[in-house]
Design a protein around this nucleic acid. Structure first.
Lengths: 247, 247
DNA sequence: GCGATACATCTTGTATACAACCACCGGGCG
DNA sequence: CGCCCGGTGGTTGTATACAAGATGTATCGC
């Protein structure tokens, strides 16, 4: 999603390889645990082995592939516990980012942006549940979490947070798309937005401990959504990364 | 140090490349911010460009190089604040690992291992400060921190913790080597060991909050050591990664 | 004299050919 | 009949050759 705007070093073929293999994995063409050979991938995508090699290495550090001891890569397999841990980890890191933002203070202009974002999110969830602007909420929600990372004022934390969110199911919007049709879920967005306000307020008031605690708890919303989605196979298929989860 | 025992996928040439470039960077041959071209590195190490390319990509995700927008890599430059943040980050992650270990509980055999490690560390710091077994302490200390990561019972956390420790100055033993000659430092080891005991006790007693808090604070010892080392250029040179720190 | 454009050189990105390694399979020997 | 050993296929690891892009410089025009 946001990865499309990351030129980094992949000019063309390598990027094609990354995207292609990602699709191969998330579409379920290659089963979790299955080994994938450079040559077959390169033939399948019509790209030479060299960029495929680079793409595979990238995807390994991205977390959806794992290196095999004897060489080569296999599709990484996740358990439900892994997903829960990834969510917990995101909560811990975002909580730290929020705490640092509160402790170190943020500039007035940043505060203005933060408040604007809160207003945008408010607008998206205000009114009767039927008229919620879900797409807008998802976009602003992603922006909000991105901003928390920035406000920490720490390149190191920011970088690590970006890394953790690369896992397909640990992002803040991972389970949102799946549940558009579930009524109870929509009201939970309102609750999530209350937490957003609390986080922003804590940062503004420089209440570090509160900012951290609330942000951590906020991430556990994803955990709840995960449990919910797991009960319904139809919903599971709408969460892209969940094909990697075994049991 | 512990990287030598990581075959992963680098059989020979790529590994040589990683080690070679690492040395080039840490020896100060290449200044922070300086661009390093594949061809010059490949000539310098007598290796073809292909494995060098892989090595450079590895070192980028390891954190000591950064990708240049126009292609290629440069030696990453760190500020003192970055180092402090990396230490904070390690504390947060280790704290989480310790909390999870406490909350989820550990097996009796793991507990026995943990206690044994505490005894080993005790033995290394017992007695007059002149006779401290510093090398032993460093080794057991590294083992202790590794064990905390394992006890979390989470592959995800463990993997992330390993990643963060790859930064040369964020490991638990990063500043220990440098200060063998400083008397005041040695007594701080005793204090650190008290924290080790508290962490182990908290995990055993399943006191998650305490385990997390103490482990976080324990990491800040490194922060103190950092401030101390920064005052003395002679000491700075004994911490390998500190050549990457600019101001 | 200054700016812009075109060229030259160096850089990385890509493709392909070769070598080494691992694993599997078959046959022979104990 | 089982185990060990050697061959063979396929895989990844490495080297090199080529193409495309970027950057810096020099020259030409204004």
């Amino acid at each position: 999603m946001a990865d499309a705007v990351r030129p980094e070093k992949a000019s063309s073929q390598t990027l094609k390889g990354v995207l292609g293999v990602r699709d191969l994995v998330f579409s379920g063409t290659i089963a979790p645990g299955e080994r994938l050979s450079e040559i077959s991938v390169s033939e399948h995508l019509g790209i030479s082995r060299t960029p495929i090699r680079a793409a595979l290495a990238r995807l390994e550090q991205e977390g959806i592939l794992e290196a095999i001891p004897s060489g080569g890569y296999a599709v990484r397999q996740f358990s439900v516990a892994d997903v829960a841990d990834a969510i917990e980890l995101r909560g811990v890191l975002e909580g730290t980012a929020a705490r640092l933002a509160a402790e170190r203070g943020i500039t007035p202009s940043c505060l203005a942006n933060l408040r604007q974002l809160i207003r945008d999110l408010d607008a998206a969830v205000t009114g009767p549940v039927e008229t919620l602007d879900l797409d807008g909420y998802i976009a602003f929600n992603a922006q909000f979490h991105e901003m928390i990372a920035e406000l920490s004022g720490s390149r190191i934390i920011q970088r690590e947070l970006e890394r953790v969110m690369q896992l397909p199911f640990s992002g803040p919007s991972a389970f949102l798309n799946a549940q558009t049709s579930v009524p109870a879920f929509r009201t939970s967005l309102v609750f999530g937005q209350m937490q957003h306000r609390a986080i922003a307020h804590a940062i503004e008031m420089r209440e570090g401990a509160r900012a951290e605690a609330v942000t951590r708890e906020h991430a556990r919303l994803a955990r709840i959504n995960l449990d919910f989605v797991l009960k319904d196979p139809a919903l599971m298929q709408r969460v892209p990364g969940l094909v990697l989860v075994s049991n």
